[in-house]
Structures are given as structure tokens and as C-alpha cells.
Amino acid sequence: MTQKLDILIFGAHADDAEIGMAGTIVKHTSAGFSVGICDLTAAEMSSNGTVELRKDEANHASKVLGLKMRSNLELPDRGLFVTPENIEKITAEIRKYSPSIVFAPYWEDRHPDHIACSKLVEEAVFNAKLRRYLPDQPPVQVDELYYYFINDLGRVDLMVDVSAYYGKKEEALSCYQSQFAKTHQNAVSTPLTEGYIERVRARDSLLGQRKLIPFAEGFATKKPYTVDVFNSK
């Protein structure tokens, strides 16, 4: 029987979730939450690295993060279109692990695959609860769907203090040497190889400054929050 997850995070490529929320992941796994990542593609169109190397890097990063599982749906890189077939595969993954909370990339980003992943996951979360959709699989009601930021910081509705876990975030990102460093003579210069990790660090530091904390990761939601009373404490 598949273990139920507290949190399931979707990314178009291995390293997406680490860029956006590795600190939050480690904060939760360290507290005993069961967390998993599903990468939609094998990133076969990446300018640097190979599919095999990216898989090894993701496995190493998963150990740093303390994940319960990591899967890859092997959908086509640069072919993440909102089709019934792709929605069905993601819905099946949600039903397999029955997470309480799902994360997806923010709906605006410079990379079209990140935008497509965001939309696909939103569609799948909705379909997962429909008992007449794929009726051979039990329906799953996801409590919350949150969006994390990769390349572009958008509207931040909430943020998590990850100061105590930021070293682990940098360790997880450093697992992806093929993406963030020019590791061989044929490496191609991309936005990721030109000080990208340093810019992520600066972004997370600047966001934390809003609440006078060293590092924070931001998230967006499309659902309003319910409060009993407004309290500044």
C-alpha cells in the first residue's frame, strides 16, 4: 500500500522545487512531515547535462531534503501541454499519494514549462476529487493548493521563515552541478550558470527582510484565508 503524503510538490523539471521551496521542504521533513516531489519531465531538452545525470542529481538532492518519495512522469520536456492525457497522469499521481497539501509553480514565469505545469496541476487537483473521473481510482480531496516561485517573484500571499534551514537549501541546489555550474568544456552559458544560486539567495533574503528575518520563501494561493479575529501577535 502506498504511503499517504502530507505534502506533494510538482515541478516541470528536477531542481524546480528546490529553487522555489527547498528550505520549506527541509523544515517540514525535519518536523516529521512526509513530503514527496513529482517531476513531470526528465528535462531532456536542457542545454546542459544529460537525462541520466539529472536523475542522479535529483536523487542526491532528495536525500538532502529528506523526501519520502520522488517520482518522474516522463512527460515530454517542452511538450507540457494542457491535454486530457497529461491531466490524467498527474491526477493519478495525486490519487496515488493522497496528499493533504499540493504545491505547484507560480502561474507566471519566464519558462513556459513552469506555467504549463502550474495549470496542469491545478486541473489535476480539481479532477482528483471527482468520483466519476477515472472511477477505478478512489477520489482524493486536496485541502490546499499553493504556488511557489522559480524564476520570477510574483504576488506573495504568505511566506515561511527558512533561516535555520537555508544551508540545506543551498546544499540541495549544489547537487545540480550540471545546471548551476559549467562543469565541462562544452557547457553552454544559460541564466542558470551565471550566478543563479546567488540570485536565489538574494531573493530569499530580500523577501525575509519584510518581516526582519534572514531568509524566507514566498508562496501564493488562489483561495482566501479564514480568520477568527485579527491579532498582531
Rank of each mutant, 00 (worst) to 15 (best):
M1E: 07
M1H: 03
Q3W: 01
L5T: 03
A14H: 11
A14T: 08
A17C: 15
E18T: 13
G20Q: 02
G20C: 09
G23L: 05
T29D: 08
T29C: 10
A31H: 13
F33C: 10
F33S: 13
G36W: 00
C38R: 00
L40T: 08
M45L: 12
S46K: 03
T50R: 04
V51P: 00
V51C: 00
E52W: 01
L53H: 02
E57P: 05
A58D: 07
N59V: 12
G66L: 06
L67F: 03
M69W: 07
L75G: 02
L75S: 03
D77W: 05
R78G: 01
V82F: 09
E85W: 03
I90P: 01
A92N: 01
I94K: 00
K96F: 06
S98K: 06
A104S: 14
P105Y: 01
Y106W: 13
H114N: 08
C117M: 04
C117W: 02
S118H: 07
E122N: 08
E122M: 11
A124W: 04
V125Y: 07
V125L: 11
A128T: 00
K129F: 06
L130A: 13
D136H: 15
Q137E: 14
P139R: 09
Q141A: 14
V142M: 06
F149P: 03
F149D: 02
I150A: 06
N151H: 12
D152E: 13
D152C: 06
G154P: 10
V156T: 13
L158V: 09
M159Q: 11
V160H: 06
V162M: 12
S163K: 04
Y166D: 00
Y166R: 02
E170G: 00
E171V: 06
K182D: 04
K182H: 11
V188F: 04
P191I: 08
L192E: 10
L192P: 01
T193E: 03
R201T: 14
R203Y: 10
Q209S: 15
L212M: 12
F215P: 01
A216N: 05
A220V: 04
A220N: 13
K222G: 14
K222S: 13
P224K: 08
P224H: 08
D228T: 10
V229T: 12
S232N: 12
K233P: 00
K233F: 08
